[in-house]
Amino acid sequence: MDLLPVVIFLQSILAATWRMATPILYAAVGEIFSERAGVLNIGLEGVMLIGAFAGYSVAYESGNLILGLLAAIASGILSGLIFSFFTITVKANQIVVGAAYNMIGMGITGVLYRVFYAESGRALSLKTFAPIEIPFLSQIPFLGEVLFKHNIMVYATLLLVPLATFVLYKTAFGLSIRSVGEHPKAADTVGINVNRTRYFAVIIATTLAAIGGAFLVLAYADQFVEGIVTGRGFIALAVVVFGGWSPWGAMGASLLFGIFYALQLRLQAMGNIMIPYQFLQALPYVVTVLVLIGLTKRRVQAPKALGVPYK
């Protein structure tokens, strides 16, 4: 039997895996900060959509991807401020605000996209971040293709995960975050400003989610389409839980999703498979959830104060 087609098939799937995992990983690592601080933001999907649109429109109009990324970051900060204001200052129900934010994200980006782009008759694609081939390493057969021919935003996750871990576990700020999500009153009695800490944590979360959204237009697809995030915000929420609220855990869980996403794309492209494409599209979501349920034997406890406004 000829092994070559199998190897190529595997190579193409694994090469896409990390890329597929990246937007989810950004959002999930961010959400870990937020949830560790006690704020559950189910509005990630909306935050990512707004980030994607902000990133796309600024990059498209200016022709500069970095400006687009900065615009996404700005939109993420703004989203964080809005979400924090309602959930932390006003103490509205986090689920309700999050759900509303998803609808707002969907609506606003949809309307703006139609008004400014869909019917403008302009060519809408932009030039995305190019893959950077790491010298020598990218020449290694198989591994080179899988690991060393990605764009900057994919590589950046290698920095993001250890950095997030470091901040959470090795800095006073991280300690404060973990405390206010677990026992906010205790944090309060030693002089930590609970609400301010939560604001920062939420803004970190929404900023990273917006970057994850922007990845989709700046480093993956080359244009915006309505609802481009397609549930990745929700998958990120699941990834946070399955990853046990730890950045490395989130990385593992999002890579798992990435594999199946890549697999279904590959299967769709093969064309001669007699499965309706909707089933294939659902595959990564279904399998991720099933596999992770099977894998999580030891349940990690959610932060105690998750979802509970302080005072």
């Binding site: 090795k170 300690l175 405390s179 677990e182 002089g191």
Partner: peptide, 28 residues
């Protein structure tokens, strides 16, 4: 306090230094 003001998921030492340093401090 009557109801202890300790965070159960972190260590004794972390509880003791909690809130004592500026945010940017690396716990080295």
């Amino acid at each position: 306090h009557q109801h202890f003001m300790l965070v159960p998921t972190i260590t004794v030492a972390e509880n003791i230094i909690l809130g004592q340093y500026p945010s940017w401090k690396v716990l080295n």
